[in-house]
Simulated scan of single mutants.
Amino acid sequence: MYTLDIDKVHFLRDVWQKKPLLITQGFKDFVDPIAADELAGLACEEEISSRIVVTKDNDWEVIQGPFEDYDDRGETHWQLLVQAVNHWYPDSQPLVEAFRFLPDWRFDDLMASFATPLGGVGPHIDNYDVFIIQGEGERRWRVGDKGEHQRRNNDPMSPMVEDFEPIIDVVLKKGDVLYIPPGFPHSGETLTMAMSYSVGFRAPSQQELLTQVADSLIDSNGGQQRFTSIDEPANPGLLSQSQQQGIMALLAQLAQDPSSYQSMLGKMLSQNRFELDICEGEEPLNVEELQELLAEGASIARIGGLKVLQLEADSEPRLFINGEEFQVPGINQEHLSILSREVHLDTELAQQLCESAAVSELLVQLINQGLFFLGE
Protein backbone atom coordinates (compact mmCIF):
# COMPACT_ATOMS: atom_id res chain seq x y z
CA MET A 1 0.00 0.00 0.00
CA TYR A 2 1.36 3.44 -0.94
CA THR A 3 0.26 6.64 0.80
CA LEU A 4 1.43 9.99 -0.53
CA ASP A 5 2.33 12.20 2.43
CA ILE A 6 0.98 15.60 1.39
CA ASP A 7 -1.82 17.93 2.37
CA LYS A 8 -4.08 17.25 -0.61
CA VAL A 9 -6.33 20.26 -0.01
CA HIS A 10 -3.34 22.61 0.05
CA PHE A 11 -1.79 20.89 -2.97
CA LEU A 12 -4.91 21.18 -5.13
CA ARG A 13 -5.53 24.79 -4.09
CA ASP A 14 -2.01 26.24 -4.19
CA VAL A 15 0.27 23.94 -6.19
CA TRP A 16 -1.57 21.82 -8.77
CA GLN A 17 -0.88 23.15 -12.29
CA LYS A 18 0.70 26.28 -10.79
CA LYS A 19 4.24 25.51 -9.64
CA PRO A 20 6.71 22.66 -9.13
CA LEU A 21 6.99 21.07 -5.71
CA LEU A 22 9.56 18.84 -4.03
CA ILE A 23 7.89 16.38 -1.65
CA THR A 24 10.73 15.03 0.47
CA GLN A 25 9.92 11.48 1.57
CA GLY A 26 6.51 11.70 -0.06
CA PHE A 27 6.46 7.92 0.29
CA LYS A 28 7.95 6.74 3.56
CA ASP A 29 9.65 3.33 3.46
CA PHE A 30 9.12 3.24 -0.30
CA VAL A 31 9.39 -0.17 -1.96
CA ASP A 32 9.92 -0.42 -5.72
CA PRO A 33 6.77 -1.98 -7.22
CA ILE A 34 8.83 -3.67 -9.95
CA ALA A 35 12.42 -4.90 -10.14
CA ALA A 36 14.85 -3.82 -12.86
CA ASP A 37 14.98 -7.29 -14.43
CA GLU A 38 11.18 -7.50 -14.50
CA LEU A 39 11.03 -4.10 -16.20
CA ALA A 40 13.61 -5.27 -18.74
CA GLY A 41 11.41 -8.30 -19.41
CA LEU A 42 8.34 -6.13 -20.10
CA ALA A 43 10.38 -4.14 -22.63
CA CYS A 44 10.92 -7.36 -24.60
CA GLU A 45 7.20 -7.60 -25.35
CA GLU A 46 5.92 -6.38 -28.73
CA GLU A 47 2.70 -4.85 -27.41
CA ILE A 48 4.37 -2.81 -24.67
CA SER A 49 5.70 0.67 -25.48
CA SER A 50 9.35 1.01 -24.46
CA ARG A 51 12.48 2.87 -25.45
CA ILE A 52 16.13 3.28 -24.52
CA VAL A 53 17.59 6.78 -24.33
CA VAL A 54 21.36 6.95 -24.80
CA THR A 55 23.06 10.09 -23.48
CA LYS A 56 25.75 11.48 -25.76
CA ASP A 57 27.79 14.69 -25.80
CA ASN A 58 25.07 17.36 -25.78
CA ASP A 59 22.77 15.00 -27.61
CA TRP A 60 20.53 11.93 -27.11
CA GLU A 61 19.70 8.87 -29.15
CA VAL A 62 16.30 7.24 -28.75
CA ILE A 63 15.95 3.55 -29.61
CA GLN A 64 12.42 2.15 -29.71
CA GLY A 65 11.64 -1.28 -28.26
CA PRO A 66 10.95 -4.13 -28.04
CA PHE A 67 14.43 -5.31 -27.04
CA GLU A 68 15.90 -8.79 -27.22
CA ASP A 69 18.75 -8.16 -24.78
CA TYR A 70 20.83 -5.40 -23.20
CA ASP A 71 24.29 -6.94 -23.41
CA ASP A 72 25.78 -4.21 -25.62
CA ARG A 73 24.46 -1.24 -23.63
CA GLY A 74 27.32 -0.87 -21.21
CA GLU A 75 27.17 0.31 -17.61
CA THR A 76 26.70 4.07 -18.04
CA HIS A 77 24.96 6.76 -20.14
CA TRP A 78 21.64 5.05 -20.89
CA GLN A 79 18.20 4.48 -19.44
CA LEU A 80 15.28 2.19 -20.22
CA LEU A 81 11.76 3.63 -20.11
CA VAL A 82 8.61 1.50 -20.20
CA GLN A 83 5.19 3.12 -20.60
CA ALA A 84 1.91 2.00 -19.03
CA VAL A 85 3.52 -0.45 -16.62
CA ASN A 86 0.24 -0.37 -14.66
CA HIS A 87 -1.48 -2.01 -17.65
CA TRP A 88 0.77 -5.04 -17.59
CA TYR A 89 2.12 -5.42 -14.06
CA PRO A 90 -0.67 -5.62 -11.45
CA ASP A 91 1.69 -5.09 -8.50
CA SER A 92 2.20 -1.50 -9.70
CA GLN A 93 -1.50 -0.59 -9.39
CA PRO A 94 -1.27 0.36 -5.67
CA LEU A 95 1.20 3.11 -6.59
CA VAL A 96 -1.33 4.51 -9.07
CA GLU A 97 -4.04 4.39 -6.40
CA ALA A 98 -2.03 6.85 -4.29
CA PHE A 99 -2.74 9.53 -6.92
CA ARG A 100 -6.48 9.00 -7.33
CA PHE A 101 -7.20 12.21 -5.45
CA LEU A 102 -6.85 13.52 -9.03
CA PRO A 103 -9.52 12.54 -11.59
CA ASP A 104 -9.15 9.36 -13.62
CA TRP A 105 -9.91 11.14 -16.88
CA ARG A 106 -6.67 13.10 -16.52
CA PHE A 107 -4.54 10.06 -15.68
CA ASP A 108 -2.27 8.96 -18.52
CA ASP A 109 -0.05 6.14 -17.29
CA LEU A 110 2.63 4.96 -14.91
CA MET A 111 6.01 4.97 -16.65
CA ALA A 112 8.89 3.12 -15.01
CA SER A 113 12.56 3.77 -15.71
CA PHE A 114 15.81 1.94 -15.06
CA ALA A 115 18.80 4.25 -15.50
CA THR A 116 22.55 3.77 -15.38
CA PRO A 117 24.95 6.47 -14.06
CA LEU A 118 25.02 9.55 -16.34
CA GLY A 119 21.89 8.36 -18.11
CA GLY A 120 19.08 10.85 -18.57
CA VAL A 121 17.17 13.15 -20.82
CA GLY A 122 18.35 16.70 -21.34
CA PRO A 123 16.45 19.92 -20.68
CA HIS A 124 12.91 19.63 -22.01
CA ILE A 125 9.34 20.83 -21.48
CA ASP A 126 6.33 18.54 -21.19
CA ASN A 127 2.71 19.42 -21.94
CA TYR A 128 1.38 17.32 -19.05
CA ASP A 129 1.60 17.16 -15.26
CA VAL A 130 4.02 14.61 -13.86
CA PHE A 131 4.96 13.22 -10.46
CA ILE A 132 8.46 11.74 -10.48
CA ILE A 133 8.97 9.16 -7.74
CA GLN A 134 12.46 8.01 -6.86
CA GLY A 135 12.99 4.31 -6.18
CA GLU A 136 16.35 2.63 -5.65
CA GLY A 137 19.38 4.79 -6.37
CA GLU A 138 19.73 8.54 -6.80
CA ARG A 139 19.01 11.01 -9.58
CA ARG A 140 19.62 14.74 -9.75
CA TRP A 141 16.76 16.84 -11.06
CA ARG A 142 16.82 20.48 -12.11
CA VAL A 143 13.58 22.42 -12.75
CA GLY A 144 13.40 25.90 -14.25
CA ASP A 145 10.72 28.56 -14.08
CA LYS A 146 7.94 28.87 -16.61
CA GLY A 147 8.57 31.42 -19.34
CA GLU A 148 10.05 31.86 -22.80
CA HIS A 149 12.66 29.16 -23.30
CA GLN A 150 14.64 28.78 -26.50
CA ARG A 151 13.99 25.49 -28.23
CA ARG A 152 16.95 23.27 -29.01
CA ASN A 153 18.44 24.09 -32.42
CA ASN A 154 15.66 26.71 -32.84
CA ASP A 155 13.26 23.89 -33.71
CA PRO A 156 9.76 25.05 -32.56
CA MET A 157 8.51 21.44 -32.61
CA SER A 158 11.24 20.09 -30.35
CA PRO A 159 10.41 19.34 -26.68
CA MET A 160 14.09 20.00 -25.93
CA VAL A 161 15.19 23.45 -24.76
CA GLU A 162 18.49 25.15 -24.13
CA ASP A 163 19.80 25.07 -20.58
CA PHE A 164 17.96 27.11 -17.95
CA GLU A 165 18.41 28.67 -14.52
CA PRO A 166 17.01 26.20 -11.97
CA ILE A 167 14.51 27.10 -9.28
CA ILE A 168 14.79 23.52 -7.97
CA ASP A 169 18.10 21.63 -7.99
CA VAL A 170 17.90 18.46 -5.93
CA VAL A 171 19.16 14.91 -5.64
CA LEU A 172 16.14 12.66 -5.22
CA LYS A 173 16.50 9.76 -2.85
CA LYS A 174 14.29 6.73 -2.37
CA GLY A 175 10.73 7.82 -1.54
CA ASP A 176 11.18 11.46 -2.67
CA VAL A 177 8.62 12.86 -5.11
CA LEU A 178 8.98 15.79 -7.51
CA TYR A 179 5.85 17.34 -9.04
CA ILE A 180 6.26 19.31 -12.30
CA PRO A 181 3.31 21.05 -14.03
CA PRO A 182 3.16 21.63 -17.79
CA GLY A 183 5.46 24.30 -19.21
CA PHE A 184 8.27 24.11 -16.64
CA PRO A 185 11.63 23.02 -18.13
CA HIS A 186 13.40 20.20 -16.35
CA SER A 187 16.23 17.71 -16.77
CA GLY A 188 17.34 14.62 -14.90
CA GLU A 189 20.75 12.99 -14.52
CA THR A 190 21.38 9.60 -12.93
CA LEU A 191 24.05 9.47 -10.21
CA THR A 192 23.84 5.76 -9.35
CA MET A 193 21.96 2.82 -10.82
CA ALA A 194 18.40 3.92 -10.26
CA MET A 195 14.74 3.05 -10.60
CA SER A 196 12.21 5.84 -10.93
CA TYR A 197 8.53 6.21 -11.76
CA SER A 198 6.55 8.91 -13.54
CA VAL A 199 2.82 9.28 -12.93
CA GLY A 200 1.49 11.46 -15.75
CA PHE A 201 -1.73 13.44 -16.13
CA ARG A 202 -2.95 14.97 -19.39
CA ALA A 203 -5.77 17.20 -20.56
CA PRO A 204 -6.90 17.51 -24.19
CA SER A 205 -5.65 20.35 -26.36
CA GLN A 206 -7.90 22.58 -28.46
CA GLN A 207 -6.62 20.76 -31.53
CA GLU A 208 -7.56 17.37 -30.08
CA LEU A 209 -10.98 18.61 -28.98
CA LEU A 210 -11.83 20.11 -32.36
CA THR A 211 -10.76 16.93 -34.11
CA GLN A 212 -12.96 14.82 -31.84
CA VAL A 213 -15.91 17.22 -32.18
CA ALA A 214 -15.66 17.05 -35.97
CA ASP A 215 -15.46 13.25 -35.98
CA SER A 216 -18.40 13.00 -33.58
CA LEU A 217 -20.57 15.32 -35.67
CA ILE A 218 -19.77 13.37 -38.83
CA ASP A 219 -20.62 10.06 -37.14
CA SER A 220 -23.94 11.41 -35.82
CA ASN A 221 -24.73 13.57 -38.87
CA GLY A 222 -24.99 16.51 -36.46
CA GLY A 223 -23.82 20.08 -36.66
CA GLN A 224 -25.93 20.96 -39.70
CA GLN A 225 -26.84 24.50 -38.65
CA ARG A 226 -25.42 27.19 -40.97
CA PHE A 227 -24.61 30.83 -40.42
CA THR A 228 -27.19 33.47 -41.34
CA SER A 229 -26.61 37.22 -41.33
CA ILE A 230 -28.90 40.25 -41.13
CA ASP A 231 -26.70 42.64 -43.10
CA GLU A 232 -23.91 42.49 -45.63
CA PRO A 233 -20.90 44.82 -46.06
CA ALA A 234 -20.84 47.27 -48.97
CA ASN A 235 -17.51 45.84 -50.10
CA PRO A 236 -18.19 42.38 -51.59
CA GLY A 237 -14.58 41.38 -50.84
CA LEU A 238 -14.94 42.07 -47.12
CA LEU A 239 -15.78 39.59 -44.37
CA SER A 240 -17.11 41.84 -41.62
CA GLN A 241 -16.11 41.47 -38.01
CA SER A 242 -19.69 40.72 -36.99
CA GLN A 243 -19.83 37.94 -39.56
CA GLN A 244 -16.55 36.49 -38.36
CA GLN A 245 -17.91 36.43 -34.83
CA GLY A 246 -21.26 35.03 -35.96
CA ILE A 247 -19.62 32.16 -37.86
CA MET A 248 -17.42 31.24 -34.89
CA ALA A 249 -20.44 31.49 -32.60
CA LEU A 250 -21.74 28.34 -34.29
CA LEU A 251 -18.96 26.46 -32.49
CA ALA A 252 -19.84 28.15 -29.21
CA GLN A 253 -23.43 26.94 -29.61
CA LEU A 254 -22.18 23.36 -29.73
CA ALA A 255 -20.22 23.91 -26.53
CA GLN A 256 -23.40 25.12 -24.79
CA ASP A 257 -25.44 22.06 -25.74
CA PRO A 258 -24.56 18.99 -23.60
CA SER A 259 -26.15 16.63 -26.12
CA SER A 260 -23.58 17.83 -28.65
CA TYR A 261 -20.48 17.14 -26.58
CA GLN A 262 -21.13 14.75 -23.68
CA SER A 263 -20.83 11.53 -25.67
CA MET A 264 -17.74 12.83 -27.44
CA LEU A 265 -16.04 13.84 -24.18
CA GLY A 266 -16.91 10.58 -22.44
CA LYS A 267 -15.48 8.47 -25.26
CA MET A 268 -12.41 10.65 -25.73
CA LEU A 269 -11.43 10.90 -22.08
CA SER A 270 -12.03 7.23 -21.24
CA GLN A 271 -9.72 6.12 -24.06
CA ASN A 272 -6.16 5.09 -23.22
CA ARG A 273 -3.15 6.16 -25.26
CA PHE A 274 -1.44 2.82 -24.60
CA GLU A 275 -2.63 -0.71 -25.29
CA LEU A 276 -4.48 -2.53 -22.52
CA ASP A 277 -3.92 -6.11 -21.41
CA ILE A 278 -7.37 -7.38 -22.44
CA CYS A 279 -8.14 -10.69 -20.74
CA GLU A 280 -11.08 -12.36 -22.49
CA GLY A 281 -12.03 -15.76 -21.08
CA GLU A 282 -12.19 -18.93 -23.14
CA GLU A 283 -15.92 -19.35 -22.55
CA PRO A 284 -18.44 -16.50 -22.26
CA LEU A 285 -20.01 -16.03 -18.84
CA ASN A 286 -23.72 -15.60 -18.16
CA VAL A 287 -25.52 -13.89 -15.28
CA GLU A 288 -26.38 -17.13 -13.49
CA GLU A 289 -22.75 -18.28 -13.57
CA LEU A 290 -21.59 -14.91 -12.27
CA GLN A 291 -24.00 -15.15 -9.34
CA GLU A 292 -22.72 -18.65 -8.54
CA LEU A 293 -19.07 -17.54 -8.63
CA LEU A 294 -19.80 -14.61 -6.33
CA ALA A 295 -21.58 -16.94 -3.92
CA GLU A 296 -18.38 -19.02 -3.87
CA GLY A 297 -16.34 -15.95 -2.86
CA ALA A 298 -15.20 -14.47 -6.18
CA SER A 299 -14.47 -10.76 -6.55
CA ILE A 300 -14.48 -8.53 -9.63
CA ALA A 301 -11.77 -6.10 -10.74
CA ARG A 302 -10.86 -3.90 -13.69
CA ILE A 303 -7.87 -4.71 -15.83
CA GLY A 304 -4.90 -2.40 -15.28
CA GLY A 305 -5.29 1.12 -16.62
CA LEU A 306 -8.96 0.79 -17.57
CA LYS A 307 -10.93 4.04 -17.25
CA VAL A 308 -14.59 3.93 -16.24
CA LEU A 309 -16.10 7.40 -16.38
CA GLN A 310 -19.43 8.86 -15.38
CA LEU A 311 -20.44 12.35 -16.53
CA GLU A 312 -22.00 14.63 -13.94
CA ALA A 313 -25.44 15.84 -15.05
CA ASP A 314 -25.34 13.42 -17.96
CA SER A 315 -28.33 13.58 -20.25
CA GLU A 316 -28.53 9.76 -20.29
CA PRO A 317 -27.85 6.87 -17.87
CA ARG A 318 -24.50 5.55 -19.13
CA LEU A 319 -20.85 4.90 -18.46
CA PHE A 320 -17.88 5.48 -20.74
CA ILE A 321 -15.30 2.69 -20.72
CA ASN A 322 -12.19 2.46 -22.86
CA GLY A 323 -13.54 4.84 -25.49
CA GLU A 324 -16.95 3.20 -25.72
CA GLU A 325 -20.37 4.25 -24.50
CA PHE A 326 -22.31 1.78 -22.36
CA GLN A 327 -26.00 2.64 -22.09
CA VAL A 328 -27.30 1.33 -18.75
CA PRO A 329 -31.01 2.10 -18.35
CA GLY A 330 -32.25 0.72 -15.06
CA ILE A 331 -29.03 1.35 -13.14
CA ASN A 332 -29.41 4.00 -10.48
CA GLN A 333 -27.00 6.86 -9.88
CA GLU A 334 -25.53 5.28 -6.75
CA HIS A 335 -24.56 2.16 -8.67
CA LEU A 336 -23.11 4.22 -11.52
CA SER A 337 -21.04 6.14 -8.98
CA ILE A 338 -19.68 2.94 -7.41
CA LEU A 339 -18.78 1.43 -10.79
CA SER A 340 -16.95 4.59 -11.86
CA ARG A 341 -15.14 4.92 -8.52
CA GLU A 342 -14.16 1.41 -7.42
CA VAL A 343 -11.32 -0.38 -9.19
CA HIS A 344 -11.97 -3.59 -7.22
CA LEU A 345 -15.34 -4.96 -6.14
CA ASP A 346 -14.94 -7.34 -3.22
CA THR A 347 -17.36 -10.25 -2.91
CA GLU A 348 -19.82 -8.46 -0.64
CA LEU A 349 -19.98 -5.28 -2.72
CA ALA A 350 -20.22 -7.22 -5.98
CA GLN A 351 -23.13 -9.26 -4.62
CA GLN A 352 -24.91 -6.12 -3.48
CA LEU A 353 -24.51 -4.52 -6.90
CA CYS A 354 -25.64 -7.67 -8.68
CA GLU A 355 -28.97 -7.58 -6.88
CA SER A 356 -29.73 -5.25 -9.78
CA ALA A 357 -30.30 -7.24 -12.96
CA ALA A 358 -29.02 -4.30 -15.03
CA VAL A 359 -25.73 -4.22 -13.10
CA SER A 360 -25.31 -8.00 -13.41
CA GLU A 361 -25.81 -7.83 -17.17
CA LEU A 362 -23.33 -4.96 -17.50
CA LEU A 363 -20.66 -6.73 -15.42
CA VAL A 364 -21.10 -9.95 -17.43
CA GLN A 365 -20.68 -7.93 -20.63
CA LEU A 366 -17.51 -6.25 -19.33
CA ILE A 367 -16.04 -9.55 -18.10
CA ASN A 368 -16.76 -11.23 -21.45
CA GLN A 369 -15.07 -8.35 -23.26
CA GLY A 370 -11.97 -8.83 -21.11
CA LEU A 371 -12.22 -5.40 -19.49
CA PHE A 372 -13.09 -6.75 -16.03
CA PHE A 373 -11.99 -10.07 -14.56
CA LEU A 374 -12.92 -12.40 -11.72
CA GLY A 375 -10.57 -12.85 -8.80
CA GLU A 376 -10.48 -15.03 -5.73
Rank of each mutant, 00 (worst) to 15 (best):
V121W: 03
I168K: 02
S270M: 03
G223Y: 09
I168Y: 03
Y89E: 01
T116Y: 02
L276Q: 09
G200C: 03
G188H: 11
D59E: 11
G330Y: 04
N272W: 04
Q64S: 15
Q271Y: 01
R152C: 00
E148N: 05
L39S: 03
R73N: 02
E165L: 07
D57S: 14
S92P: 12
Q369N: 15
A255V: 06
I338M: 12
E316G: 00
V31C: 12
V62G: 14
S205D: 09
E376S: 13
L217K: 06
Q291D: 08
G200F: 04
H335T: 09
W60Y: 13
A84C: 06
L345T: 01
L276Y: 14
G237Q: 14
D104V: 10
R151E: 03
S216E: 14
N221K: 12
T190E: 05
V177R: 10
T211C: 05
R152W: 10
R302C: 15
G65R: 10
S92E: 09
P66F: 13
R139Q: 05
A115H: 07
L290V: 09
S205W: 06
D91Q: 14
P329A: 09
E355D: 14
L309V: 03
Q271N: 05
I168F: 05
G246N: 12
D126L: 11
E334T: 11
G188T: 13
N235L: 08
Q25C: 05
Q271W: 02
N86S: 15
W78Q: 08
T190H: 08
P117W: 00
P182F: 14
S50C: 01
E355Y: 10
K173C: 05
E97V: 08
Q253L: 13
I132V: 15
E355M: 13
F99G: 03
S229Y: 14
T190K: 07
K28R: 10
R140K: 09
E292D: 12
Q25V: 09
E275P: 00
P236T: 08
H77E: 02
P90A: 14
L276E: 06
Q64P: 06
P117C: 01
A40C: 04
I52S: 01
A40P: 01
L251C: 00
E342L: 08
E280T: 13
G370W: 11
Q134V: 05
R273C: 00
W88R: 03
N235K: 10
L95C: 11
P123D: 11
A43C: 00
H335Y: 12
L250D: 13
C279I: 03
L293F: 05
H149M: 08
F373P: 02
G297N: 07
D129L: 01
D69N: 15
D109F: 08
E342G: 01
Q351E: 13
D176H: 10
H186E: 15
G135R: 04
P33L: 04
L290T: 11
